[in-house]
Design a protein around this nucleic acid. Structure first.
Length: 812
DNA sequence: CTAGGGTTAG
């Protein structure tokens, strides 16, 4: 294969001689002739055998006692040993007083600095060497380049590369392999390749360097192509090649290629090598075959902690959290010391299981193993506690966490958002913003749903702008979140524009768009889009069908809905869940086919849950059917709902039918069981602020003004034909009933919105419950007399009020 | 003194 197949151009062959030409090296034997009584001295033999700092400290007094401390051999050996044990202070103490320091001593010292000290001290020692006219040798550069690569210090890496050139090592295989590696570790894979390409001779190690470079920089396919090219040029892949390439195979997830590599491993006899087997099992689990991974894992007669970690993570990532915990437990039982990666895998499994108890156990382990200084581990703890619904503990950890990374912020924001703490999520996002920590796609995917929840179009535009400025507007996850957000902010056409602009769409992108049309009452468009999706390559999933069914339900498209429900199992093999059955009952019930809905419930293959009977009860409320309503409510109460909404619904059915004694009974039950109706609230966005209103409250600073305005507004709409619907309120005087109605949170929010925006501006309201009959009617008239468009998003759908009409066609 | 490449991770 020639290099034109690769996405880079080959550089012309170098003009300079092709033979590597290292400078002559100074060796100890060349410099000094050591008499045998010195190098055969017992102390010299002891030094030769020395394996620990402790032993070294025991030998030193003997060296001094025998007057050998000033002998070159002993000085050299001592410096080397101190460097090996990372004790640069002691090494310097031997090194500095030596008068005639020969070059090798400098080289040893530099190695010491490079292996155990900071880049800074290694480099300053290196410049001292230049200053003191020590001729550099190749391995000075290889050590320094490695250090720059490990620290991802491109700037200084380039400086060392410069020194390599000026010192005449440009064509040295070892030095240039170091340069290639440095560039790829600094994520400059193109520079790395350019250097690789110019090398006059390349051996196996050099090929491995560039291959692992591409693999680690996310260019899995290029890495694989290079393996082929390397073989064609006569280098047989060794175990290092295999271990480098397997993560790349895992990345692209091609099991077929992975198995081919496995075959090669068997033929080459690399299987007994732990790192090869570990990389293989990791590849299998990432390519979707945990079972194969497990077979390899079980067949290993020796495992490292990486093997265990890989296996735990393999289970966790494939969705088998319980399997991950079993391996984790087995690992602890066998006495293998967990690392940070181990606990991160275990915590993820606990999070997936929502298992707080075991999560806390792993947390204790983290403390015992002193892993609490590892930010990644702490981030995993934040995620685990959030997923286990203890966002309070997560927030505590986050607050006390030193050196927070962007990942920490993302984990916290997502934790808040997933626990319904929308304001906390937004506050954290703003704080992150003000600290100048740049949001990435993960941040956006966490924070955008929080804004969608609030339905604030202005903030929606602001975050969209931020997405563009952060160059995240090509990311399919971020764009899907934006489509969903615009739909949930009432700007469905903007959502569609973004949807059409996207080059890549996932199933959730389609779901968001179909659901958006559904909740806006644009059932026909939703159905059209769903049909378009079925023609394409992206397969609908259970959620898609749920969105489609709910869209049909909101628009009264009963036949289409029945047809989709049928096709779901028949054509796509998707088993309906409780939510699908609920959607079907909703579809039939809303359309007034109450008996058919009840029959449908009786024929369900699974025991109907609250969702199903709740849909039935809601339909009975709309169509004023006391009989079936009572039956449905009875079933719901047997299932012990934790919110009082269903009792209220039944009470409303009785009120509409003027069955006051039965209504009183329901109220008594509610009081006895302590069940409460969820308090209603409405939000409206004015400028950069979001204002919330609760029914009957006067806490808003403009409260007086709002109530006054509401009074004149009600007079105006009454004149236009509005009649208050006091049906559901019965035990107070008529004028009080009207007053109570006028303090509903959405009326307050609408009045406030009208007062604080200019003529013609549409008003967006977000309400947590279903909009009530009287408010719905009143809002229609308000839109007529004020000539304003009012968009209300309630618990289930959107209502676009314009010129006295609502988009839901009074069917909600 | 005596060089360069490799596995797990939100």
């Amino acid at each position: 294969m020639s290099s034109h197949l690769l996405p880079f151009t080959a550089t012309p062959p170098p003009q300079i001689p092709t033979k590597a030409s290292p400078l002559p090296q100074h060796t100890l034997s060349q410099r000094t002739h050591i008499p045998s009584h010195i190098y055969k001295h017992p102390a010299a033999i002891l030094l030769e055998l020395c394996t620990s700092p402790k032993e070294l400290n025991q030998i030193i007094p003997q060296i001094i006692k025998n007057g050998l401390y000033n002998e070159t051999l002993f000085q050299t050996k001592l410096i080397s040993l101190f460097c090996k044990y990372g004790n640069l202070t002691e090494a310097s103490r031997v090194f500095e007083p030596i008068e005639d320091k020969f070059d090798a001593l400098y080289h040893t010292m530099l190695k010491g600095y490079a292996k155990s000290s900071s880049l800074d001290s290694a480099l300053s020692f290196f410049s001292r060497m230049k200053h003191e006219s020590v001729r550099p040798v190749v391995y000075n550069f290889t050590y320094l380049l490695k250090l720059c690569g490990d620290n991802s210090d491109l700037k200084r890496g380039k400086e060392i590369h410069g020194s390599v050139i000026t010192s005449g090592f440009s064509w040295n295989l070892f030095a240039m392999t170091g340069v290639v590696n440095m560039y790829s570790k600094c994520r400059q894979i193109n520079d790395a390749y350019n250097m690789f390409d110019r090398m006059p001779e390349r051996d196996l190690v050099c090929w491995n360097t560039i291959i692992s470079g591409y693999a680690q920089n996310g260019f899995a396919k290029v890495a694989l192509m290079l393996v082929l090219r390397m073989s064609e040029e006569g280098h047989r892949p060794d175990s290092v090649t295999i271990v480098s390439i397997l993560p790349a195979v895992a990345d692209i997830g091609l099991l077929r290629i992975g198995m081919a590599v496995h075959g090669y491993v068997l033929r080459a006899g690399f299987e007994p090598l732990v790192n090869v087997s570990t990389a293989l099992l990791d590849m299998y689990s990432k390519c979707g075959s945990v079972r194969f991974a497990r077979v390899i894992f079980d067949g290993m007669d020796h495992r490292t902690v990486v093997s265990w970690n890989s296996m735990i993570d393999g289970y966790a990532q494939s969705g088998d959290a319980e399997g991950a915990m079993l391996i984790f437990q087995k690992m602890l039982d066998e006495g293998v010391q967990p690392t940070n990666v181990t606990v991160m895998g275990a915590l993820r499994a606990c999070a997936d299981l929502g298992d707080l108890e075991r999560g806390k156990f792993v947390h204790k382990l983290v403390d015992q193993l002193k892993l609490d200084s590892d930010v990644s581990v702490m981030n995993s703890l934040i995620s685990m506690y959030s997923k286990c619904k203890r966002v309070d503990i997560a927030a505590d950890i986050f607050k006390n966490l030193q050196n927070k990374t962007p990942v920490s912020w993302n984990a916290m924001i997502l934790g808040y958002a997933q626990n319904g703490c929308v304001n906390e999520a937004l506050n954290a996002f703003c704080e992150m913003h003000s600290r100048n920590i740049k949001p990435d796609s993960f941040t956006m995917v966490s924070v955008i749903p929080a804004l969608a929840e609030l339905s604030t179009p202005r903030q929606a535009k602001w975050i969209h702008g931020l997405v563009i400025r952060r160059f995240l507007d090509k990311n399919v996850f971020v764009m899907t979140a934006l489509v969903d957000m615009y739909a949930k902010c009432g700007t469905i056409h903007t959502a569609r524009k973004l949807f059409d602009m996207m080059n890549e769409r996932h199933v959730i992108t389609w779901n968001a768009m179909i659901d958006g049309y559904g909740t806006h009452g644009l059932g026909k468009t939703a159905v059209e889009l769903f049909k378009e999706m079925r023609k394409g390559t992206i397969k609908p999933n259970d959620i898609t069908f749920l969105c489609a069914l709910s869209a049909c339900s909101h628009s009264g498209l009963v036949e289409e809905g029945l047809c989709f429900f049928d096709s779901m199992k028949k054509d796509y093999g998707i088993e309906p869940t409780m939510d699908h059955y609920g959607a079907m009952v909703d579809l039939l019930g809303r359309a007034g086919r109450l008996n058919q809905a009840w029959d449908f419930i009786q024929k369900m293959p699974i025991d109907p849950g609250i969702t199903v009977y709740g849909a039935m009860l809601g339909a009975c409320k709309i169509h004023k059917n006391v009989d079936l309503g009572e039956k449905a409510a009875f079933e719901i109460f047997k299932l012990n709902p934790d919110d009082g909404g269903y009792h209220v619904l039944l009470a409303n059915i009785y009120a509409t039918a003027s069955m006051w004694d039965k209504l009183a009974k329901v109220r008594t039950i509610m009081e006895k069981s302590g069940l409460q109706k969820t308090p209603g609230w409405s939000l409206v966005e004015i400028g950069n602020e979001v204002h919330s209103f609760h029914s009957g409250t006067t806490s808003h600073p403009q409260s007086r003004k709002i109530y006054d305005y509401l009074e004149t507004l009600v007079d105006e709409i009454r004149a236009a034909g509005y009649v208050p619907d006091t049906n559901s309120i019965h035990d107070v005087e008529d004028d009080v009933k009207v007053q109570l109605l006028n303090t509903h949170s959405e009326k307050l929010a609408i009045a406030f919105g009208l007062l604080n925006t200019s003529t013609g501006t549409p008003i967006h309201i977000r309400k947590n419950l279903r909009v009530c009959g009287d408010c719905h009617n009143a809002t229609k008239y308000i839109s007529l007399v004020t000539r304003r468009e009012i968009i209300v998003r309630d618990m289930h759908r959107f209502h676009h009020f314009k010129d006295g009409v609502c988009s839901c066609g009074d069917y909600w």
